[in-house]
Write a protein that binds this DNA or RNA. Structure first.
Lengths: 343, 343
DNA sequence: ATGAAAGCGCTAACAC
DNA sequence: GTGTTAGCGCTTTCAT
């Protein structure tokens, strides 16, 4: 409550409407058994006084805040800002307000999101677990209403919403093989110690390459620190310095892909003539790069809707008893000029 | 409060520590007059019990929520997602949590941010006023602690933090004139009825063009609906259809610039040879387009810090009495290959 | 279908 | 410096 305004209390409305506070409360919360006459009276009184609930008081009394947290690496990646937008929209439909927590994929901040001070003021948490360990996901202070997003090796007994990253990686490799590429490089964050989204993507790629009877060459796996455009540009320099450069580069997201394309152009390498390039996430930008970037699109809206839906279910009466569910949303390969020459 | 956990109340801590609830409260809120011995005892008890404040209860009792709202058009524009990141960081330093409200530049949602149900649960509001009118900014329910960002014709008696968009536009035009360009087109959202950020930018551009003794040609002012990449692409088609196409295109943001560059390339137009292109916002993407996009960079971090600082001041004891302040943050022209041929 | 009373967990006066 | 006493505005049993 911000104070100053909002002086009008529920009790005041009750007085004007000539009913009890409880009845006003019933009207506000759309309780079923209120006569139409009473409801109309109360609504008139609310309008007249300009009444609005005090959410702090409601939260204290009802033990529900109406907030959910979305803990993601950062909004500076279009993938996450788009996801955030969808989550906000999906949450609004259930009168939930979204708190965005930027974790930077750091263990400390992911932990804080799940069990920090703020965690006790949200009715649920949606988390992308990049660095956090299993113990912290289920520890003493961990939020009981948790949905995990993205591929990860974390096997906490929590709901999980993700796309099939390994399958997506496989399709991408197969597409490149079909274009006659055989020396496939990858550029992306190297997993630290645990199997997170990046690691699983690596595995999917490796498997696909090997199933084709090709070798996964160590010098073609370029680790970067941040999965951003400048990292992609640097990786290109490393790859072009090799005795036998790759003929295809798979980037772990389109941001890296953007940097890779820019650098290849500067270096005078033709795409896809000399080297094909592809990414993940299907950022809008990728339709406007030169050449347009082939990418794997994930159904972010479905992820968002599903997360909110699970949270809602668990916040309900017997939600805690539900067994954890794993939801896999769709993805599709969007082929563009960076892997297939146009005309 | 999420319930289930957090069972530990302040009173429990007091009991374990052997002090009163008030003393515990004093410790938590860093009240000055607490003896070290007491503080240590209380902190030990808190750690032992795993105590954490109930923010809902605190909000209700103290009439301060610890939330501020950031109401911006949308996170899908890197300009705003970056700004949001900075605001979150700045707010965190003062233990404030940021609620992001996406307005889509719609009047209704901007209004809601300032005076809607949610507005009474935040200690302050940072708003980019694209469509809202003066009356709604000061109306009955409007939040009393409001900071406006971005250029706008709105003259509400609220704090205002902005860059000098007109000056920036002027510098950009002068740069283009210095490169020998004379037929300067602009692509961007046309202001509806009131002088918002876009309109002011238009004016700055027009003035600069006219001061140079050139004419502002109506057919060179291309209105678009969303200031996004696809809009830029479409605008190019319109401009190239003219009898005398422009020799420079100023885009109202870098997103549009990205679309313009992509389309010019497709159409076989050389940049900057045939047409120079420039934008606003200095997105990271603009360093990786082909050619890299000349752009005006605004000091977003300064905007964020300043907004939080003003909100903080007004949330303080006699903040309401302070006269509204207008802060102008820096900007700079970042010249790249889209306006000046390299080598 | 509506009312009365209790209390959510904290902070804020005011005493001491 | 620390304790005591009231609420903050709402929801929630339990009656009726």
């Amino acid at each position: 409550m911000s104070g100053r305004r909002g002086r009008v209390r529920l009790e005041d409305v009750a007085e004007v409407a000539g009913v009890s506070a409880k009845t006003v409360s019933n009207v506000i919360r759309n309780y079923r058994y209120v006569s139409d006459a009473t409801r109309t009276k109360v609504e008139a009184a609310m309008a007249e006084l300009g009444y609005r609930v005090n959410l702090s008081a409601r939260a204290l009394a009802s033990n529900q805040t109406g907030f959910i947290a979305l803990a993601i690496p950062g909004l500076d990646n279009p993938y996450y800002s788009r996801l955030a937008g969808y989550v906000i929209d999906a949450a609004r439909e259930h009168d939930w307000i979204v708190l965005i927590e930027q974790t930077g994929s750091s263990e400390a901040l992911e932990k804080a999101a799940v069990s920090g001070a703020g965690s006790q003021l949200v009715d649920g948490v949606i988390l992308q677990p990049d660095a956090i360990g299993h113990a912290d996901l289920t520890g003493r202070f961990a939020h009981h209403n948790l949905v995990l997003i993205g591929e990860s090796g974390v096997t906490a007994s929590a709901d999980h919403v993700t796309a099939d990253a390994a399958a997506a990686a496989r399709e991408l490799v197969e597409h490149l093989l079909a274009q006659g590429r055989s020396r496939i490089a990858t550029v992306g964050i190297r997993p630290q110690d645990r199997p997170n989204a990046s690691e699983l993507r690596y595995r999917g790629l490796s498997q696909a390459v090997e199933s084709a009877g090709l070798q996964v060459r160590a010098e073609y796996l370029i680790p970067v620190s941040r999965n951003r455009r400048p990292d992609g540009a640097e990786a290109v320099d490393q790859l072009l310095a090799l005795d036998e450069p790759p003929d295809a580069i798979i980037c772990f997201n389109d941001l890296v892909g953007s940097g890779v394309l820019a650098r290849l152009r500067e270096r005078g390498v033709r795409v896809p003539g000399d080297i094909a390039v592809a990414g993940f996430d299907d950022n809008e930008e990728s339709r406007f790069t030169y050449p347009p970037l082939t990418s794997v699109a994930f159904d972010l809206e479905a992820i968002a809707r599903r997360c909110v839906q699970r949270l809602l279910l668990r916040a309900g009466p017997d939600g805690a008893d539900q067994p954890p569910v794993r939801t896999v949303v769709g993805h599709r390969l969007v082929v563009r000029g960076s892997t297939v020459a146009s005309d």
